[in-house]
Nucleic acid binder design. Structure first.
Length: 426
RNA sequence: GGAGAGAUGGCCGAGUCGGUCGAAGGCGCUCGCCUGCUAAGCGAGUAUACGCUCAAAAAGUGUAUCGAGGGUUCGAAUCCCUCUCUCUCCGCCA
């Protein structure tokens, strides 16, 4: 959510920044409602001040045993007018927050202007794309041949866009999770958290999945619960409505959770394999920082995610999302894209974003600056470190051999009981 | 699921028959004084949000907030209703 005060004072600037996203919002309506709200608020508060003063006098009279009936009658009608005003005010404030909650974040100055993903500049590239003297297979064929991925049975259980891993496949998923969590907690300084996988609406409003993106979420019958689409939601909301000590910042959390997504509107896209599922595991990194530190923290967050790919020896590149491709809540995002030889393309495997105070304002996450009065909103960041399923896809496709077996990268072997290669029936 | 108890400021804890209560007292914390050092002692301060005044900062001022929402009343932390959460006991359960 954008700051209403900032918007009020920088309407043209905000409008032009939003336009670079292709979503300029309804700022004229905002301005009118904001003005109406303040006028109404002032009027109502003046009346309340009067009522408070009158009531105090009535109290004083009554204490002396005097009759105050006339005054009481006069104040009664004031009370009715106050109530009427409050109702109008409430209606205006609801409309206003409706606008504010659906207005996207302003892109950071350093974000390249562009209309869609074709205009995302490449920031850096790492690793050598593997060269094969045979035709590399897509992961679903490898997985089936090796007997570690069983998509037909997954469909029998749950329908399209679900996966079933068996044997070395299931173990590989678990190995990846443990490897990633160990790296981030033991070497990168994150604290591991294990969160609920269902949350209530205020949490989703806090991180900005609601109210605008309800159609992407699974709603659970029998309660006001949603399945989390990413660990970002529960982890960021850990500190919702809290005032943190400055000395506690930055806070860095790592969490592995399943992610549940409807994938509405992506019919026909990535229908085969493990790339786009209704349920997948993801290790997520979340940070709470002081505003002045957040862009440095975005760089280190991205590096922390990249480190996973480097240790696994997976070639990748980093792109900076342009204004037109930026997520609703993000001020700046780097995507990590891993090379998939089976499909001869780079695919997103991590998205690292700085939300600045956009989520913090919705979720009321603040800190108390030392040596200054009052509170400030923290900046929140998060990034995948990494999407586990897509990581498995990348491993299979990059480390496949002519005979269909797959080499397990060095870094993962301790987590695989020393296994070096995945063979058929392994 | 059944029965009961509770929810007040960073923490503990008072709030009488509703009347000036943003809330006594204590602890903690901050600043100052005192003191060879530490401790103790003394003094002052110590919630948040949204408005308004102001060029702005500082400051001042208004309103709201005693789990949440609604009601009664001139006036509610105090009375009534609904909800949420916590604790205890019983039952059930991985």
């Amino acid at each position: 959510m954008l700051d209403a005060k900032f918007l009020r004072e920088n309407l043209d600037y905000a409008s032009s920044r939003l336009a670079t996203r292709g979503d300029s919002g309804n700022l004229d309506l905002f301005r009118d409602l904001d003005e109406e709200r303040r006028a109404l608020l002032q009027e109502t508060e003046d009346m309340k001040a009067l009522r408070n003063a009158e009531s105090a006098q009535i109290g004083a009279l009554r204490k002396q045993g005097l009759d105050a009936r006339e005054r009481q009658d006069a104040v009664r009608s004031l009370g009715e007018r106050i109530k009427a005003n409050e109702e109008r005010l409430k209606a205006v404030e609801e409309k206003l927050s409706g606008i504010l909650l659906t207005l996207p974040n302003l892109p950071h100055e350093s974000v390249p202007v562009g209309k869609d993903e074709s205009e995302n500049p490449e920031i850096r590239v790492w690793g050598e794309k593997p060269v094969f003297d045979f035709d590399p297979l897509p992961h679903w064929e490898l997985g089936e041949m090796l007997g570690i991925i069983d998509l037909p049975r997954a469909a029998k259980l749950s329908g399209a866009r679900f996966s079933l891993l068996t044997g070395a496949g299931a173990r590989l998923e678990r190995a990846l999770i443990n490897f990633m969590l160990d790296l981030h907690t033991l070497e990168h300084g994150y604290t591991e958290v294990l969160t609920p996988f269902m949350v209530q609406p205020p949490s989703l409003t806090g991180t900005a999945q609601l109210p605008k993106f309800e159609e992407d979420l699974f709603h659970v019958e029998g309660g006001e619960y949603y399945l989390i689409p990413t660990a970002e939601v529960p982890v960021t909301n850990i500190h919702r409505e809290e005032i943190l000590a400055e000395s506690a910042l930055p806070i860095r959390y790592a969490a592995c959770t399943p992610c549940f997504r409807k994938e509405a509107g992506s019919h026909g896209k990535d229908t085969r394999g493990l790339v786009r599922l209704h349920q997948f595991n993801k290790v997520e990194l979340v940070k709470f920082t002081r505003p002045e530190d957040s862009y440095d923290e975005l760089e280190s967050l991205t590096r922390d995610a990249e480190e996973v790919l480097m240790r696994l020896g997976l070639p990748y590149r980093v792109v900076s999302l342009c204004t037109g491709d930026l997520g609703f809540a993000s001020a700046k995002t780097y995507d990590l894209e891993v090379w998939l030889p089976g499909q001869q393309t780079y695919r997103e495997i991590s998205s690292c974003s700085n939300f600045e105070d956009f989520q913090a304002r919705r979720a009321q996450i603040r800190y108390r600056p030392e040596g200054a009065k009052g509170t400030r909103l923290v900046h929140t960041l998060n990034g995948s470190g990494l999407a586990v399923g897509r990581c498995m896809v990348a491993l299979l496709e990059n480390f496949q051999q002519a005979d269909g077996t797959v080499i397990i990268p060095e870094a993962l072997r301790p987590y695989m009981g020393g296994m070096e290669i995945i063979t058929r029936g392994g």
